[in-house]
Simulated scan of single mutants.
Amino acid sequence: MDDSRLASFESADGQRSVEFNRDGAGFVRFQEFVRRHDDIASAYWGFGQYSGLYASLEEAIIGASSDLPWFDRPGGHS
């Protein structure tokens, strides 16, 4: 089974984003993407941090708010 996206959020400046996905075994993880620039590709999304596995989306969101300084947990503060 493929991963399924549960949620995604973008930073206020549009330079970073984070996606939350559930894998085939039911675990949730997050992956950060960072806007990068170079002379050949111009602007593109590169990989940033990625997490370990969490049992739930809420746990993954709490983990992301702790690990990603720019990410403020939706509905609360980290």
Rank of each mutant, 00 (worst) to 15 (best):
D13A: 14
A43N: 14
R73K: 14
D39P: 05
S8K: 13
S66W: 02
S42K: 15
R16T: 09
D39Q: 05
L68H: 01
Q15P: 01
E59L: 06
S42L: 05
P69R: 09
E19F: 09
R36L: 14
V34P: 06
Y44A: 01
E32T: 03
A55T: 04
L68P: 02
G48R: 05
N21G: 02
V28A: 04
L53R: 09
A43W: 14
L53K: 06
D2H: 02
G24D: 00
E19K: 09
D2L: 11
G48I: 10
I61E: 10
P74H: 13
E10A: 12
D2R: 14
Q15A: 14
A43G: 06
R35T: 03
R35V: 10
H77I: 15
Q49W: 00
S8I: 02
E10M: 13
F27R: 07
W45D: 07
Y54L: 03
D3H: 07
R36D: 00
F9Q: 08
S56E: 08
M1L: 03
A25P: 01
W70P: 04
G46H: 05
D2A: 13
S4G: 05
G76Q: 10
I61V: 11
D67H: 05
G26M: 06
D72P: 00
G26I: 13
H77L: 11
D67K: 04
G75D: 11
D39W: 08
G52P: 00
S51Y: 04
V18G: 02
Q15R: 09
S66D: 14
I62S: 12
F33D: 05
A25M: 06
A60G: 07
G46P: 00
W45F: 10
A60W: 00
S78F: 04
L57A: 02
S8P: 01
D23G: 08
Q31R: 11
Q15M: 02
A55V: 12
W45G: 07
L53S: 12
S11G: 15
L6H: 03
F30P: 04
R5E: 15
S51A: 02
S4Y: 12
E59H: 07
G52D: 13
F33I: 05
H77R: 13
Y54E: 08
G46C: 13
F71E: 03
S4A: 11
A7L: 10
A7K: 09
F30R: 02
F33T: 00
A64Y: 03
Y54S: 04
F47Y: 10
F33L: 15
G75P: 02
D67W: 06
W45N: 09
Q49P: 00
A41H: 14
L53A: 15
F20C: 08
D3K: 11
Y54K: 01
F9M: 07
E10Y: 04
W70G: 04
H37M: 10
Y44L: 10
F30Q: 04
E19Y: 10
G52W: 09
R73A: 14
S66M: 01
M1E: 15
D39S: 12
D38I: 06
Q15W: 05
R73I: 07
D3W: 13
R5K: 11
P74T: 13
R5V: 08
R73Q: 12
Y44D: 04
D23T: 02
